[in-house]
Amino acid sequence: MHAYTEKIREAAQRLLTEKKVDAVIGFRHGTVPMMSEPVCVRHADQVHQLVWNGFCGINLANYLAKRKDRVAVTAKGCDSRNIVIHLQENQIRRDQVYILGAPCHGMVDRRKVWEFLKGREPLQVMENGSSLKVSGKGFEEVLERQAFLQDNCRICTHRNPVIYDELLGDPVPEQTDVDRYEDVRRVEAMDSEGRWRYFNDLIASCIRCYACRNACPLCYCPTCFVDESRPQWVGKTLDPTDTRTFHLLRAFHVAGRCTDCGSCERACPMSIPVRQFTKKLEKDVKELYGYEAGVVVEGRPPLDTYRPDDPQDFIK
């Protein structure tokens, strides 16, 4: 069992018994390998459901916006950054949320494991420190965990929560020698037509289920632009222009706010690397305005502020 599990249960028990919070939001064991299900525990006698493992990739800040009660929540580095953004955007008050910070070693990408197994179905996946033991009918493989992390985790530079009330373990060393934008630069190097085709192929299989949007803690608009009908900005068929409009605007709506938590990509049933849209914006925001989303509560997100001397070479 992961070392955090006991600590989460202990904290949940304490917070619920002392009535410090009304509920604890965390994860429970999933029903399929390499999945954990977000759960909301309201009574101290249910805290045994709470677990922690390398499959807790979904961003729990998604369950916090506009809440009225007081909750405790387990938060990885990225989750904590999204909580910071919620605070900046007045989606929740700081005194409403008790953050159980989880220094994180990255989350496992089950698609990478599937790909490795080439059609063999994993029936059980166990974590043991830096290895993953995957077993199924007639096979057992021990994999190096690091090689099967989500793409965003491999280049994560905020593994430790940036804000918390208690920490579930010692801070982990931050990755400092990662190149966050290698893939963006590769696309940038293509010519215009090549980039058009690249993104065409990227979203060709999109079924417009909006899992990427809904898995995102930043997408809390009461009415999404795709649902607006007067005027209707985007058609609802699988027309490539409509699909692209959706992906472009979804990405633009999270510009300067996206923490690259990877929930969108993790949620996509068609395995579309949707982060290719948001990462470009993240890179631009960093280069133009020197801002990283959700790292400090003070100050405003980059599109909610300006400097008189902002770059404007592109303006005549």
Binding site: E188, W196, R197, Y198, R244, F252
Partner: peptide
């Protein structure tokens, strides 16, 4: 920048 990055 985003539009040009995606091929406009």
């Amino acid at each position: 920048s985003l539009l040009e990055h995606t091929g406009i």
